[in-house]
């Protein structure tokens, strides 16, 4: 199925957020993720199933100031 990650289209197998991030070698720690404009809390990542045409925004949590 097709999703977009930071505006880049990707063809993926149906999977959870956590599995998908592992598949693309993206770190879990220190990351935040929004799907279709809504932040998905990290505790949901293992069970949250990605859907066709989901638009993912993946970025790092920053603490500096």
């Amino acid at each position: 199925m097709k999703i977009t990650v930071n505006e880049v289209e990707k063809e993926i197998q149906p999977s959870s957020i956590e599995q998908f991030l592992k598949d693309i070698d993206s770190p879990i720690k220190g990351s935040a993720l929004a799907i279709n404009g809504v932040i998905i809390s990290r505790v949901q990542w293992p069970n949250y199933q990605l859907q066709e045409n989901d638009s993912l925004s993946l970025f790092q949590v920053i603490a500096g100031g």
Binding site: K29, G30, S41, R42, V43, Q60, V61, I62, A63, G64
Partner: peptide
């Protein structure tokens, strides 16, 4: 949700 992640 974490205080202990590697930080930027």
């Amino acid at each position: 949700p974490s205080s202990v992640d590697p930080q930027l």
